[in-house]
Design a binder for these strands. Structure first.
Lengths: 382, 382
DNA sequence: CTGAAAGCGCTTACAG
DNA sequence: CTGAAAGCGCTTACAG
């Protein structure tokens, strides 16, 4: 790809020299006047400013030259550009979008552009996409990214690049050492949700998680919070907290929710793993899902298999982003709400404070979550 | 805000001069070798390249200087940065996000950063936000924006700014003169949807639209398509196409869907305007909504008022972004699907072609839409 | 109080 | 085939 183009004729933009000529002063004087911090005669400053304004001088257009000149003296400029990195599929996930809104609002209000970058994007041949050029040449004043994304090596890559160095980074959703963090208290939300179920009388709960890691079912901190809540009620998690891994097809738009109705009409339906599991574990009376999408899929699946919600099984979601509406439009799903837009705002605020130098060290923000009790949870059947 | 910071000690990045010294050649030679297009001795080129590589020379880090130097010769560089402008609330709208994904994918794969900009953002005091700095200084190679946004004056503002000039612009969703367009054939979708209803036997249809303009109910092109479809069946739109303006509270997350259930328990419920309208116009047997969210709200409202869907009223949505699921998770809403991610890809492709110079003039892409018939439409009751 | 100078890191005519 | 020169537009020491 040819990177250089010869543009169609442009009106030449106004430069310091143009102003200097018109004012009959030197370029240095104009530069000083424009920067404001000088011992020039007030009258000179006023005259230069007036002429600059009249000629339509646009300093932002010449920031490149300014940056270059400043390097000589070992100083850097704020570029008013930050990147928001995230895995490609996040643009489909409502809880990310709420956060995105908060970030974009705060940074936009401060005059910063927010550049989006997919970290897990791949070329057609499967090779990983490199960062866009903007992100590789010191244009970025800072970066916001989900903790999971940073943990995958993005942070190291950024720190190693000459263009980024030790500029500020804010981790979103999950706390990460070596940068600032803006996270919601999701373990607290899990604890509340579990207490809610236990207080209703449930004793065997199915924990629907993402995938297993060496440390346990991910996200591990939430799993541990669920365990602790059980222990508070004198229950041994090993016996009372049942584990069920989430299955990708549940929320894949091409496979989820589409086949149940068709199966009705057709041949014998294969048993859904979740239904099988519950049939062999009749002591389970409640499901705690890692997000609303999983909760909804469990709900549809169980309804289809003849379970009544919440009479036979109580279901709790997470995030409060995907409603389960009845025919009146009322959301029935008990879930844990995270202050996502606020989380985004806080992430933006932390980053700005570091960029402008108002803050020096890393800072962590932890926002409370809130259990929202609706109609998908009830006392277990007796 | 102080724009300049004195950074912590950075390792000085490698420059042409460093390489030149090590190679015992001049800076010009190094520059030529690095650019590749020269009549240098192949051996020299090889040696310079090897040393540059070994020293870790990063050309992208010095793009600023390169840009500056190129200006002297009236040439411009591609900056690998484009902006995507949209009204603030679009980050909540699923149909925009699908499109966003397509845009980000295509541009990311080409090494371009995508910078998001809110056009309707306001400061706390209500004043309109200016563009972020990046967007005001010639950093942008091009812009993508919804047609509605461009029509509000963004295009003029961009063209008038020295930093942007006549760079390429692609209009999304709605066609706009004076730039390239990537739009879906929504009028075609409306026509199909209306034919579907008329073929089922409906004769009086309620058209739920955004708001009235001088040209008619917006979006006007879709309204006219609805009229034409009626005329094809020998019906006069003036008598058979009933107009109902959309009410903002319907999709405001703070007021929509929340109160119906609570009202059940409480005092006398005020009649919903839609219900009132249908009661005074019993000849209406079908609703054609401008998007799925409105269709869903109409559905919930009518269900609550005792109407059966589709037995009493057929409902057609638009976009296929918001499902109306039954308890099995099956989507019941008949609607018109737009190829949104593809639309985003096309918009990105058009922009890239202009930026790289592969395409010269404006180009328009029109993608077909598709009626998806589900269970919310049926023959009218008789 | 103001200006001439050196230089950020690069580019491309232009000499040799 | 290679290098010295001029310059992009700016900045800040440093003289005067």
């Amino acid at each position: 790809m040819n990177d250089i183009t010869t543009p169609t004729a442009h009106m030449a933009p106004v430069t310091l020299r143009d102003i200097a000529e018109r004012c009959q002063v030197s370029k240095s004087t104009v530069a000083q006047a424009l920067r404001g911090q000088s011992r020039l005669a007030p009258a000179t400053v006023a005259r230069v400013l007036a002429v600059a304004n009249e000629m339509g001088y646009d300093p932002s257009f010449h920031e490149g030259a300014r940056r270059l000149a400043l390097r000589k003296h070992g100083r850097e400029m704020i570029n008013h550009l930050v990147a928001l990195f995230f895995p490609q599929e996040y643009l489909r996930i409502p809880f990310f979008l709420e956060t995105f809104r908060g970030i974009a609002d705060v940074l936009g209000a401060a005059g910063f552009g927010v550049c989006v970058g997919h970290v897990t994007g791949t070329h057609a041949d499967g090779s990983l996409l490199p960062f866009p050029q903007v992100m590789r040449r010191g244009d970025l004043d800072g970066v916001i990214a989900p903790g999971s994304t940073l943990a995958q090596g993005l942070l190291d890559e950024l720190r190693a690049s000459a263009g980024f160095g030790n500029r500020p980074v804010v981790s979103l959703f999950d706390a990460t050492a070596a940068c600032s963090n803006a996270v919601a208290d999701t373990p607290g939300g899990v604890r509340e949700a579990m207490r809610h179920l236990l207080q209703l009388g449930h004793r065997h709960v199915l924990w629907v998680y993402y995938h297993i890691t060496e440390q346990g079912p991910a996200p591990v901190d939430r799993y541990l919070a669920a365990c602790r809540a059980m222990e508070e009620f004198g229950l041994a998690p090993a016996r009372h907290l049942h584990l069920f891994p989430f299955i990708a097809e549940w929320v894949n738009p091409h496979t989820a929710h589409h086949d149940l109705a068709e199966l009705e009409a057709g041949e014998a339906e294969p048993a859904h793993p979740l239904v099988e599991y519950l049939e062999t574990h009749p002591e389970i009376t409640a499901i705690l899902a890692i997000n609303d999408a999983f909760a909804l899929h469990a709900w549809y699946t169980l309804h289809h298999a003849g379970y009544a919600i919440p009479e036979d099984i109580s279901i709790v979601g997470f995030d409060d982003t995907d409603p389960m509406r009845d025919a009146h439009g009322t959301n029935l799903l008990t879930t844990v709400r995270c202050p996502l837009e606020t989380l985004g705002r806080e992430a933006g605020r932390l980053l700005l404070a570091r960029i402008t130098g108002e803050a020096v060290g890393e800072e962590n923000v932890l926002l409370p979550t809130e259990l929202v009790v609706r109609r998908s949870t009830a006392k277990p059947a007796e």
